[in-house]
Simulated scan of single mutants.
Amino acid sequence: MNDALFQSLIHPVAPEPVPWWPPAPGWWILLALALIMGLALPWLALRWKRLGARRRRTGQALKDIPADLPDQQWLSEINSLLKRLLIRRGEVAPSRLFGEQWLEYLCNGYPRPQRSCLEPLAADLYRQTPNLTREQRRALLRELRRWLRHNHV
Rank of each mutant, 00 (worst) to 15 (best):
N131L: 09
L148F: 14
A123M: 08
L41Y: 11
Q73H: 12
A40K: 04
A123Y: 12
R50K: 14
R145V: 13
M37Q: 10
W21G: 02
R137W: 02
R47I: 08
Y126T: 08
Q136A: 12
N108G: 09
L62P: 03
A53H: 12
R57E: 04
P120L: 05
A14T: 01
R127F: 00
V18C: 07
H11S: 13
Q73N: 07
L132F: 02
L39W: 14
L30V: 14
R146G: 01
W28C: 02
W43V: 14
L62M: 08
P12V: 06
A61W: 02
S80N: 06
L62E: 00
R56V: 09
D71L: 04
E135H: 11
W27R: 15
A122P: 03
A122H: 02
G38D: 09
W27E: 14
R115K: 15
W43C: 08
A123H: 09
A45Q: 12
T133I: 08
R55L: 07
E77P: 00
R89W: 03
T129I: 10
R96W: 14
S80D: 03
H11N: 11
D71N: 10
L30D: 11
W48A: 14
R115E: 15
G99Q: 05
R115P: 05
L106E: 06
S76D: 01
R54D: 12
A45K: 09
E119M: 14
Y110L: 15
A34Y: 05
P12R: 11
L148P: 01
L97N: 01
A34G: 15
R112C: 04
R55Q: 14
D124W: 00
G38A: 11
L35S: 12
P22A: 01
E100P: 08
P25S: 06
R137A: 07
R56P: 00
S95E: 08
E16N: 10
P42Y: 08
P130F: 03
L97A: 00
Y105N: 09
R55K: 06
D71I: 02
N108E: 14
N131A: 11
R50D: 08
L81C: 05
E91H: 11
I78M: 01
R56H: 13
R57S: 03
E100S: 13
S95W: 05
I36M: 11
K49Y: 14
K63F: 09
S116L: 10
L140D: 10
G59W: 10
K63D: 15
R56T: 11
I36Y: 08
W28I: 11
G59E: 12
T58I: 13
L33C: 14
A53L: 13
R54L: 15
